Amino acid sequence: MRKTLLGVLLLILNAHYANAQAPSINDVRQAIAGEIYGFNIQGQKVESVQNIPVWTGADTIPVRVYSPSKNNALPIVFLIHGGALVAGDLNTHDNISRLLANKTGSIVIALDYRKPPEAPYPVGLNDCNTVLEWIVKNAGKFGGDAKKLTILGDSGGGLLAAALVIKNAAAIPVSNLVLINPALDLRNPGGGLYGMVTQLYLGGKPANDSLISPLVASNFSVFPPTLIVTSEKDVLKPHGDQLYEKLTQAKVTVKRVDLAGKDHLGGYWAAGHAEAEEAINETVRFILKK
């Protein structure tokens, strides 16, 4: 059986630490991309795909818009990819973007936010925020309805998605939040790979901020209806479980799905692999309110 993304990264990590050196960021990025592309899964066809540069005021953020039909006022899914906080891009998550566009009948908008170590916090979150504001302002131009907006993030992208909700609670209404194996607390990452990428993401900043560790937020009532998908064997499962409890206590509409026997979905999710089918189907049902 093919090793999971986490397994691949652990092998790389162990090999490097055996030689008294940490893996390079390129090693991590290549491992993540290599696993996803190694599945050799052909992406679904969609009605149209547009690559659009979104201006930040000083630079541009690569954005990709997937339209499932020529209809107008379609729901929008803002997809924030995962990748251990330091990896992933528009191409690694192309399959899942296409699949969700077709299955939900939504316009899926993905971005390639800047990442550490080249761009530590808050750069990536700011990029996501810039694109979110762009989506709300320009939704009608590409056939979308900003009043039917889902923010979706997997793994490290889940951290960014939750942080966006907290950051924009009073300014931008969000219809749904979907978190797949989310990382939600960077305060005590421990050692190894998770500790390494966390420190790169923080760039020396403390982690006890709700935009860095959403679990420390003081007001969870600002969250929209939320789907949290966790995996039984995933080291990040406690993050999703804790958020579920906090949202329940805040009387937010929340659904938790725990995938029995599964580990961190990682590349399976990005590639639209059969191993992620349950998570994909739960996501589609949640977005469609079925």
Results as ranks from 00 to 15, higher is better:
K103P: 00
A171H: 10
Y113F: 12
A170V: 08
L5N: 05
G272A: 09
K251A: 09
A270N: 12
L186C: 10
K141C: 02
N281H: 12
V54H: 15
L215W: 03
L236P: 00
T130I: 15
N71T: 14
G57T: 08
I287V: 11
N51I: 09
P224C: 07
S69W: 03
Y37F: 15
G153C: 08
I228V: 09
Y268S: 12
P224R: 10
I12Q: 08
G88V: 05
N102I: 08
L202R: 04
K289V: 07
F142W: 09
A73V: 04
G140T: 14
K137W: 04
D27K: 14
K255G: 01
G190V: 06
L288D: 05
G38C: 15
S24Y: 12
K70Y: 12
A146L: 06
H273Q: 08
Y194E: 13
K45R: 14
T60C: 11
S210D: 03
T4I: 07
N26F: 00
N181V: 14
L177E: 05
V174E: 04
L74C: 03
P173F: 01
P173G: 02
N102E: 10
T4P: 08
L132D: 02
V165Y: 00
S67P: 01
S67A: 13
A170T: 13
A31M: 13
V178P: 00
V174D: 02
G190S: 08
L164I: 05
A58I: 10
A183L: 13
H264E: 02
K262L: 06
L200K: 12
L164W: 05
A170C: 05
T283G: 03
V77N: 00
